[in-house]
């Protein structure tokens, strides 16, 4: 086994170029998102980068009113809650991301299963993956 290129830092590099890249297993075809050095299904190490089109479905979510310090620094809090959730990008590829464009004042209006598409948010020179209603 050689050192893997399917690293967190590579994923972040791609993200900074507004690309969602996954590690597809050459053996069993599993799309590993986030990328990982071994296929989560067959544990093989023969992987290749594939770009996902950023279209998916909202699997579940929450609207957070008590943020960690990093999001307090972004201005979020009880007066300004934010949403995050899990998005299914197809072929079993799921990822946790920020949600934008949802009515966070009325979280009961947010429906699981709706179509969403990727958005890329720049925060302090870092790119954060987000999804908005499609």
């Amino acid at each position: 086994m050689s050192a893997s290129e399917f690293t967190v830092s590579r994923f972040r590099e791609f993200l900074s170029k507004r690309k969602i890249m996954a590690a597809k297993c050459k053996k069993c075809g599993t799309v590993n998102l986030p990328p990982r050095p071994m296929c989560k299904k067959c544990h093989g190490t023969e992987l290749e980068w594939v770009e996902l089109n950023g279209k998916g479905k909202l699997v579940t979510f929450s609207v957070v009113y008590v943020p960690p310090t990093s999001l307090v620094a972004e201005g979020y809090g009880r007066e300004k809650p934010y949403a995050f959730g899990v998005v299914d990008l197809g072929q079993g590829a799921k990822i946790t991301a920020r949600l934008t464009g949802f009515d966070v004042e009325r979280p009961e209006s947010i429906r699981l299963g709706i179509n969403v598409e990727a958005e890329f948010l720049e925060r302090d020179g870092k790119m954060i993956l987000a999804f908005k209603p499609a």
Binding site: V64, P67, P68, L112
Partner: peptide
Amino acid sequence: ADAMYEFPAGATFPGLYAEIANAHMK
């Protein structure tokens, strides 16, 4: 939780169990 992927997205501990709650309710 996953500090590389969940935390930067804004996940908090209550937030993760809230995701479980929303899925369970649905």
